[in-house]
Write a protein that binds this DNA or RNA. Sequence first.
DNA 1: GTTAAATAGTTTAATATTAAATAATACAAA
DNA 2: TTTGTATTATTTAATATTAAACTATTTAAC
Lengths: 140, 140
Amino acid sequence: MTNESPWELLLGNAGVLQAALTDAEPALADAGLTDVKAFFLLTSVEQHPGPADLARALMLPRPTVTFLVKRAEAAGHLKRLPVPGDLRRFQLKLTPRGRRAMNAGRDAVDQAFASYLGRLSSAEAATFRKLIRKLAGAGE
Amino acid sequence: MTNESPWELLLGNAGVLQAALTDAEPALADAGLTDVKAFFLLTSVEQHPGPADLARALMLPRPTVTFLVKRAEAAGHLKRLPVPGDLRRFQLKLTPRGRRAMNAGRDAVDQAFASYLGRLSSAEAATFRKLIRKLAGAGE
DNA sequence: GTTAAATAGTTTAATATTAAATAATACAAA
DNA sequence: TTTGTATTATTTAATATTAAACTATTTAAC
C-alpha cells in the first residue's frame, strides 16, 4: 500500500489533466481555438460576463484576461456590449461563431478526458465526479 | 443528480489544484522557491536526472527546463555533474541547500493541498488517491 | 569505418504572461 | 457637494515560455 503524500497526489492529478489537455490540443486548433485557455474563456463567458468576473472565475490576472478577450474578439468569437448602468464595465457575449467554436472545443476536451476517465469503471467515474465536486465546493 | 460532462469535471479539478498551489505560494517563496515549477523540478531530479528526462517527466518543453535548471543552479539548489559514458549529457544533483528547499516546499504543498483534501472523509481521500493512481497509471 | 539518423542540450527570436502603474467611473461618508 | 475609497479595464515594462534552428555527440546501418 503506497501511501502517497499530498504533493505526490497533486502532481499525479495535474499530470492527468495536463495529458488530457495536450491530447485535446489538435482538435482545439481545428476548432479555431488557439489554446485551452481560449476554450475555457468561452465556456465561462455566459456565467461570468465581464473581464473582472472572468479573471476571478478562471483564476487569472486581469491583464491576461484583457489579452485573451482581445484575441477572442479578433477571432470573432466574442463581442463587447456596454453595460447600461456602469460606464466602466462591458459585457462579453458569444457570437454564433464563438458558440460553434465552444461546442467543437467541448467535444474535443470531452473526448480527450473521457479517454482517461475510461480507465475507471463507471461506478468509479461517478465517485470521482462526486469527490471533485466535494473538493471544489465549500471553498466557494 | 447533476451529470457533469468531462470538460466541466476537468475544469473543476484543475480549479482545486490551482487553488491549492496558489495557497502554497507564499510558503514556497519563504523556502527560497520562486515557483511551483521550481519545487516540482527539485522533486523530480532524483528520479529523472538530466534535462531531457525532466522535460518528459514534467511535460515541459526542453528549453523551459534549461531555463528552470539554470535558475535552480543559480539559487544553489542543483549542481551539474558530467555523465561518464556520454559527453552530451549531464546529471543534475540536489545540493544540501536544494534538498532543504525541496523539503520545505514539500511541507508547503502538502499543507496547502491537505487543507482541500480535508473536505473529504479519510475513506474518501483514500479512494481519491486510488482513483488518481488509476487515471495516471496505464498511460505510462 | 563511414554515413545517416537519433538524441542531448542550448541559443535565438517570437509570443504569452504578469506585476505595477494608470485612467476612468462608481460609491460611500462627512 | 467634495473627499476618499473601491472597482473596472487597460497600458507599459519586465519576465517567462516556447517553437524553430543549431551544435555536439552517440547510435545504428550499411
